[in-house]
Amino acid sequence: MAYHRFNLDLFISNSLLNWLGGTMASHQSTHHVIPAKVFVIILGILLVLTVLTVVFHSMQLGSLAAPVAFIIATTKAVLVMAYFMHLKYDTTINKMIFGTAFFFVALLFILCVIDIATRIPVQSTL
């Protein structure tokens, strides 16, 4: 008689709560193994991108240098995360955990910059 007597009021909450529970208890039988060949390709791309970073730097892009370097670094980071750290084949919970970390770093940076950038400087008139 294990019928479900406890009714949750908001329908959305029930499905979200159980989905949250569901993903965690899912059992993959075998872990996904990435073939060695893929790793070699990824390493090659990473080294090429590193060289690219230096090449772009020496081209004196001026104000564009920072965003370009940042984009290349982010692509390299995504490659390392997805393949070397198996995040691509991992459970959604682990991806969410790792994603929230970046979100809160961005939050700290943005709110600090909102304060520092909008300060009205006061000068001494002596």
Binding site: H27, N94, F98, A101, F102, F104, V105, F109, C112
Partner: peptide, 27 residues
């Protein structure tokens, strides 16, 4: 399998703290 899954979650949670620590100094 159950042990492996919770161990992986523990590891990823620890990685989140590393990202946050270095993230703050990058900020």
């Amino acid at each position: 399998e159950h042990e492996y899954e919770s161990a992986k979650q523990g590891i990823w949670l620890f990685m989140a703290t590393e990202i946050l620590m270095f993230g703050a100094i990058f900020a």
